[in-house]
Amino acid sequence: MKEADLRKNNEEEVRSIISEVSNGGDGMLTGCLGQRYLGCGLRSGRLYLKGTPGNGLAAYLEGGSVYVDGNAQDAAADTMNDGLVAIKGSAGDALSYGMRGGRVYVLGSTGYRTGVHMKAYKDRKSVLVIGGRTGSFLGEYLAGGVIIVLGLSGEGPITGYFCGNGMYAGTIYLRTDDIPKCLSDSLSVHAVDDDEKETSIMPFVREFASLFSLDAEKIMESRFIAIEADGSVARGQHYAAV
């Protein structure tokens, strides 16, 4: 696999690696120090990153895989359409905003506004699995797809305030018995039974576990709760046309 060190700042070399990956090959960039938009719009190939890539990592991802050995900053996987992002560390705010398809796996924790307005469409279903915990506003405006938060690391509640505010489709699974604080009245919460665990959570936890060398079965021993939009509650504003 070709490799370049971003600290040495050899633009030529970096470009050749990006083009190698764009053509479906493998490539590695080491020494990431906040460089923005790495893997932006990538369609194929495997991009390995070491260090701390900057904001907008893997934005508009169309395919291929981006692996990060380190932490990611804000707005990673923004409006991602397909492909895979695996972060062996934590991620900042606004992760997976408006994501429509593909899978994002974060071993550590994530910041505020994680998974806002994620979607699903036809064969595309956005999947976000977080090993640690998340900040407030997790899955606001969720319009489809699945968010799974495992709480394997970190301290305190598994997610912050206002989880799932305004969501109208999709599911948030939390590996806990505790209902998040300030949960909106228009959401419903249920304990996840074994069938649902097996079909809706296990496939993604298995991939998550294999990416980060963890034991999926052990993770799945714990109980999960699911948060969904309550279909019986009217959404939005009540209008009177003039």
Partner: peptide
């Protein structure tokens, strides 16, 4: 690119834009 029959809600703000710097980030992306 959303399923039939599902509401299409555009939130009042872009939840990833809280400042000119954030706007700049979207412009540049």
């Amino acid at each position: 690119m959303i399923p039939e029959g599902l509401d299409a809600i555009s939130p009042a703000p872009h939840h990833d834009i809280y400042s000119i710097e954030d706007l700049s980030q979207l412009v540049m992306s």
